[in-house]
Structure formats: C-alpha cells, structure tokens
Amino acid sequence: MGKKIVLTPSIQRILQRMGEQIKLARLRRNISMEIVAERSGLGRTTVWAIEKGSPSVSMGAYAKVLHAIEGMDKDLLLICKDDAKGRLIQDLNLTVARRAPKRKNDE
C-alpha cells in the first residue's frame, strides 16, 4: 500500500474549490452525474468524490470527468502555463553579454 498523503488545509480548500467548479460546470451544461459517470467510465461514487474535491481520487480520474464534461480536460493545460514568478527568476539569473568597447575610427 502507498503512503497516505497529508495535505495542508489550504491545499484541501483548493481541491474542494476545484471540485465545486467541476460540479458547477456540469450543472451549467445540464449534464447529469450518471451521464458523466457513463462517459468517463467511472462510477457515480468516484464522480461524487471528485465533485467534493477528494484528494484520494487519481488525477487521471479528474481528467476523465473533465473530458466527459464536453472536453474540459484541455483546461488542465492551463496549469502553470503562465509562470510569471518562474520567468522572473529565470530572467534574473540570465547573464547579460557584455559588448566589446566601440572602436575609434582610424583616421
């Protein structure tokens, strides 16, 4: 058996919010939980757990549910896409090439 993952309260809140957002996306599209379960090949219990933000459900199952909600799995590609802090750190570590001094015109 694998190790139990202990999450901080802030991560738990993020997962719960993500689950709520998945549920709202499904409801806005008027798609039943049964349809999502059927399309994703998962059980209703798993879909319910995802909508609750359960950390014990695999990332793959989350992706399958998002795909079942009209191809929303592509939204996973947005994770860390615009990494402003990482780009800033990278830019600060870049060395600026020094130019050779300008030559005086030989007259």
Rank of each mutant, 00 (worst) to 15 (best):
G86T: 12
R13W: 11
T45W: 05
D106G: 11
I14A: 06
T45H: 05
Q90M: 07
I31L: 09
A97G: 07
R99L: 11
A63L: 11
I89V: 11
E20Q: 13
L7M: 01
P101S: 02
L27Y: 09
D82P: 09
Q12T: 09
T8E: 10
I14F: 13
K23R: 12
N105T: 13
M59F: 15
V57R: 09
R13D: 12
A97L: 11
A63M: 08
A63K: 01
I35F: 00
K81R: 07
E38Q: 06
R29P: 00
Q21M: 10
T46H: 10
V65Y: 06
L66S: 01
L77N: 15
L27T: 05
T8I: 01
M59P: 01
R26K: 01
K74G: 04
D75G: 05
I89D: 12
I35M: 00
W48D: 15
I69G: 00
S10A: 02
L77F: 15
A63D: 10
M59L: 11
G41D: 13
L77R: 06
E107I: 15
M1Y: 09
K23P: 09
S32R: 01
A68D: 02
N105K: 13
S40M: 04
L27K: 03
L15F: 15
E38P: 03
L27M: 08
D106W: 12
G43A: 10
D73H: 15
L66A: 04
S58I: 14
G71T: 03
K64P: 05
I14G: 02
R98C: 04
G71W: 06
I50D: 05
D73I: 04
E107M: 12
Q21T: 12
E38K: 03
K4S: 09
K52Y: 14
E70G: 00
V96P: 03
N30L: 07
L15W: 09
L77H: 12
S32C: 06
R28V: 08
L27G: 05
V6L: 04
V96T: 06
N93V: 06
L77V: 12
G2M: 04
L92R: 02
T46Q: 14
V57L: 05
L66H: 03
R39V: 10
A61D: 10
M72D: 04
I35G: 01
K23M: 14
K64S: 09
G19R: 05
S58P: 05
